[in-house]
Simulated scan of single mutants.
Amino acid sequence: MIFEKETTTVEFVRRPNRFQGYVMIDGEEELVHVPNTGRCKEILIPGCKVLLRAEDGANRKTRFSLIAGYKGNKLINIDSQAPNKIVDEALKNKKIKGLEKYNNICREKTFGKSRFDFKLSNDDGEEYYLEVKGVTLEENGHSRFPDAPTERGRKHLLELIDVVNTRKGAGVIFVIQMEGITTFSPNDDTDKAFGDALRFAKENGVDIFAYSCKVTETSIELTDKVEIIL
Rank of each mutant, 00 (worst) to 15 (best):
K61R: 08
A68E: 04
F145T: 03
N73P: 03
L91K: 08
G98V: 09
D124Q: 14
D79R: 05
D123G: 01
A148K: 12
L44R: 10
T62V: 05
F116K: 02
M24Q: 07
H142Y: 11
G134E: 01
K133H: 05
H156W: 07
N84D: 12
D88V: 00
E29L: 01
N59A: 07
G38C: 06
G57V: 06
G27N: 11
Q20I: 09
L99D: 02
G112W: 01
N73W: 01
R152H: 12
K85E: 15
E42M: 03
H142I: 15
N36Q: 02
F118E: 10
H33N: 10
Y102D: 05
A148S: 15
F118M: 13
V23T: 08
E131Y: 09
V23S: 09
Y22S: 01
E89F: 05
G125I: 05
L91Q: 09
V135M: 00
F145W: 11
K119C: 14
G112L: 01
D124H: 12
Q81L: 13
L44H: 07
I96N: 13
L51M: 11
G47I: 06
R60D: 12
L130S: 11
R152I: 10
L31H: 05
F111D: 02
R144G: 07
Y129S: 10
L91E: 12
V50L: 05
K49C: 04
K133P: 00
Y128H: 07
K155N: 04
R144C: 04
H142W: 08
E100N: 11
R144S: 14
L137G: 00
G57W: 04
R115N: 06
V34L: 09
E108Q: 09
D56S: 14
D79E: 08
Y70N: 08
L44G: 13
D147C: 09
K101T: 13
I78T: 04
V50A: 00
E126V: 04
Y70S: 06
K155T: 15
I45T: 14
F116Q: 02
R39D: 05
K74F: 02
V50H: 08
V87C: 06
F118G: 11
N77E: 15
E127N: 10
L130D: 09
E138M: 09
R115C: 04
L120D: 10
L130G: 07
L31W: 01
Q20L: 14
S65A: 14
N73Q: 14
K97G: 05
K85M: 14
D26H: 02
D26C: 03
S121F: 02
R14N: 14
G69E: 13
P16M: 09
G69T: 15
E139G: 03
I25Q: 00
K41R: 06
V32T: 07
I76E: 05
R18M: 15
K74P: 00
L99G: 02
